[in-house]
Each structure stands twice: as C-alpha cells, then as structure tokens.
C-alpha cells in the first residue's frame, strides 16, 4: 500500500493528466463512434426507400458491425485502444472520486450538482460498461435475461433480443435491462460532456469565467447531440422486431442489400 501510494504521488501529475486525456482520447472518441454506429438502427431508416422490404436500420447496423469485425487485429485494438484505457480511467477515476466528499445537501449550486453527478455517473458507468461488455462481448449469457448470445453475424437481432429479454419482445426482466441501458448511456454521455468541460479547465484551455461559460455551451450542445444518438440507439433496439432484423441481416450478408453512402455506393460499384 505504501509503495502504491508513493507511485501515485511520484507520478501524480502524469497520472492525473493521462486520466483526463484517456477520457477524451480514446474513450470519448470511441463513445462518439460507438453511439453513431449503434444509432444507425434509427438513422439507417433515412434510406428506407432504397431497400425493398427489409428493416433499413438493422441492415445498416449489420453492415457497420461487419466492417468493424473485418478490421485486422481487432482484439489488439480492443485491448489497447479500449479495455485498458477504460480500465485505467475507471480505476483511477474511482480512486480519485473517493478522495472527495460531496456536499450538495448544503451547497446546492449547479456546478456542485454536476460535480456530484460526474462521480455518480462514473460509478454507475463502470458497472454499466462492465455489464455491457461482459454480456455482449464476452458472452456471459447468464447475465442476459432470456440468455441471448450476441453475435456479430446477427448483430441487430441478437442485440434486440438481449435488451428485450427474449426473441419475441419484452419480458419483465427485459424492461429492466432496457432501462439500465437507458440510464447507463445517459450517464456516460453526461460524464463525457461534463468531463470535456472540466478537462478544459484542468488543462488550462479555458481560464476566464466567460470562456468557461462559452465552452460550457459547446459541451452542453455536444452532450445533447450525443444524448440524441444514445437514446435513439437504445430506443431503436428496444423496439426492433427480432424477425424483421433477422431478415435484413441475412440479406446484407448475402450482398443482396447495399448501403447508402456515396463512397460505399462507389465502392460497391467498383467491386461489381
């Protein structure tokens, strides 16, 4: 313990700043991409007209997942780009959070509420991320009501089933899981937006009250945008019909459906 303490003290500044940095890059950036991908369950619908009879969101999502799974050395990217930074940020974050003692009961200022919420969102966020990764990535299906095993091949449908509690719509436990997802992503988005705001002070980017206020608006706007993505993703999967998704996935895999962006269209054209 003593040695541990001296290590922390010796590299105090570096660890603090790495902790702050890790929250933005890679974790924050990842969250942005991850939410965008997952929200494709909703924004994929923009291209509804282009597909015949399949769920456009599920198709888009399946395509995105397919792309990600095609990346080389994915496991290394995951370990060093994600899991370790998240573990580092979480462990240190929890330790730092325990050095404070919230006092919103006496000082009910907005900033103090955010301070408190930043810590609460951190604690719950760690639990949520663990649950999310353990159930979907590591297939700890005993934690999934209905026991659905998420699969990259059937990305949208298995995810919908895992959130809803069964392949045939919501179960009671499914509602709990969906709400937990809603809470988890909301808190994580807040944690990122507020973290961006405090990081700017920590690093000394915003000094004057005006600058802090202005950057606050930017972070709030970013938070609202991310929140929209996050909620659409959760709501999108919570309301996704298993069979419908299944159909879309099948057709994406067999190349019967192509995806929408201009570049991808061009890509597809070349391949043909």
């Amino acid at each position: 313990m003593a040695q541990n303490k001296s290590f922390l003290e010796k590299h105090h500044f570096l660890l603090r700043r790495l902790h702050s940095l890790a929250g933005v890059v890679p974790i924050g950036v990842f969250l942005l991409f991850h939410l965008t991908t997952n929200a494709s369950i909703v924004w994929g619908a923009i291209n509804k007209g282009k597909f015949e009879g399949v769920h456009p969101g599920a198709a888009t999502f399946q395509h995105e997942v397919g792309f990600i799974h095609s990346l080389p050395a994915l496991i290394l990217i995951e370990i060093f780009g994600l899991w370790l930074p998240i573990a580092f940020h979480s462990v240190l974050g929890v330790y730092y959070a325990t050095t404070g003692k919230n006092n919103v009961a006496h000082y009910k200022y907005q900033g103090n509420w955010r301070y408190t919420l930043q810590r609460i969102s951190g604690y719950i966020g760690v639990l949520f991320i663990f649950y999310h990764v353990a159930t979907l990535r590591w297939h700890w299906t005993f934690l999934v009501p209905g026991g659905t095993k998420w699969s990259g091949e059937w990305a949208a449908s298995t995810l919908a089933a895992a959130i809803q509690g069964s392949e045939s719509g919501f179960t009671a436990m499914g509602v709990v899981v969906a709400l937990f997802y809603m809470l988890g992503v909301s808190l994580l988005v807040f944690h990122l937006a507020n973290g961006l705001w405090t990081a700017a002070i920590t690093w000394g980017l915003t000094i004057s009250e005006q600058a802090q206020k202005r950057w606050g608006y930017v972070c709030a706007a970013a938070g609202v945008g991310l929140m929209a993505l996050a909620w659409s993703a959760v709501i999108g999967f919570a309301t996704l019909d298993y069979e419908e998704a299944r159909l879309a996935e099948e057709r994406v895999r067999h190349g019967e459906v192509t995806i929408v962006t201009e570049s991808q269209r061009a890509d597809a054209g070349e391949r043909e």
Binding site: Y96, G100, G111, N112, Y115, T202
Partner: peptide, 19 residues
C-alpha cells in the same frame, strides 16, 4: 501545484467561487 494535493486534485465543483 503539479504535485500531490496541487491544482490537479481540483474536482471543478466550483463551490469556492460561489462562497
């Protein structure tokens, strides 16, 4: 200020400026 207990331990609750 960059050592233990320095400015980086600030949690940005910003109660200080209010009181």
């Amino acid at each position: 200020m960059s050592g233990p207990g320095g400015v980086s331990d600030c949690g940005n609750a910003q109660n200080c400026v209010k009181v």
